[in-house]
Design a protein around this nucleic acid. Structure first.
Lengths: 207, 207
DNA sequence: GCCTGTGAAGCTATTCACAGCT
DNA sequence: AGCTGTGAATAGCTTCACAGGC
């Protein structure tokens, strides 16, 4: 499989959602400048992304929407629906559960873990919550490759270590600390404090 | 003001938190490789970042922690405490409110807005929630420069337009759609769907 | 004429590598 | 000896710009 830039992967995820909406409107083809306008990026970027995806367009009709959606899906969706694990069912964890509830079926949070006895064994926002003791066995047996980490900062590293030990290959990290992980585990950090400080900084620059 | 890369700004936010913890342990100086290890980045990156910050280190002692924290604070904190507005007090909005509650005083969510009558006029997670009608006046009068957008996808663009009209200069966008904004308004998109699909993709690559 | 596909150029961020300092 | 500061090299991403197709 050829090398597709991470930024392109992110945009392909967005394109797919935009294209699904466009297809629902009855459109069958789309020009790069139209998709660019919807995604708020440049047409050149769209064409380069679609080239990386392996799609070819037609100068008179643009790109086939169904072909684009299909190719993105081949790339982003596993053939078998992917299970995702959530660790940490606090305020943020619950918001994440409700956010993903009923979205793309190919990518569902299918199990959650928390150390709080009052949460374990229950179903929270439609998701079974298990204890931390059950984490390794569950993730290993169900062959879960990706997890969302929504635990407090001080528990983040030890929790990440458990996930790695269980065989996790990717972590979406909402804790405000970086994770020390082996090279073969992918991490995406979504620290809110950093994001807010960045926005405040750039908001202040143009006064 | 010289041009500091966005990635450096993000790391400086992280460095500051790590350095505050280190200072609490009684340390007064730190080497680039130590800070790099804590932040999970390379020492060269740390040195380059600190150079951009305008800090100079000493080969025998490293960098003065208090000087680093001071310089980051000059850069990231306004002289007057910044107010942040939150728009959308659903599950995610409330999680964000509770996350930032009691953190860095210089950067506090001081007002929230929602279109739901049952929420407006009340105090939710310690934050006054006002109606959308009060948005423009409140943000303009209090000169709020940055906002967090946590509304459903279909309300995102119109809400962003209202924020821009009120004079907002930066938006932290949690809605799963891109925002069409004038050039002078900074946006940081934190779409969870994209983030999760990216992690799932890269988690799948190393199997 | 207006679109796509893409080599080449341009830009930005990261890393190398080493002189200079203590 | 071991660190910092930084020019230069590298890598990665984006944009240009234009040949080619409908």
């Amino acid at each position: 499989m050829s090398r597709i830039p991470a930024n392109t992967i992110e945009r392909l995820s967005l394109y797919r959602r935009l294209l699904e909406r466009t297809a629902d409107l009855g459109r069958t083809d789309i020009y790069s400048y139209e998709l660019a306008s919807m995604a708020c990026v440049t047409p050149a970027k769209v064409r380069r992304d679609l080239m990386n995806l392996g799609c070819i367009g037609n100068p008179s009709r643009g790109y086939s929407i169904s072909e684009l959606i299909g190719n993105v899906s081949v790339l982003l969706d596993s053939d078998t629906p992917r299970e995702i694990a959530l660790v940490g069912v606090g305020n943020l964890g619950r918001a994440i559960l409700s956010y993903f509830r009923g979205r793309r079926k190919n990518l569902q949070i299918s199990v959650a873990f928390d150390s709080d006895r009052r949460k374990t064994g229950r179903i929270i926002v439609g998701c079974r919550c298990l204890s931390m003791k059950e984490l390794k066995k569950t993730i290993t047996e169900r062959n879960i490759a990706a997890a969302i980490l929504a635990v407090p900062a001080k528990a983040a590293q030890e929790t990440a270590d458990k996930l790695v030990e269980a065989g996790i290959k990717g972590i979406l990290n909402y804790a405000p600390v970086p994770l020390r992980l082996p090279d073969h585990v992918f991490a995406e950090n979504r620290d809110m404090t950093t994001a807010l400080e960045k926005v405040a900084y750039f908001a202040g620059l143009q006064e």
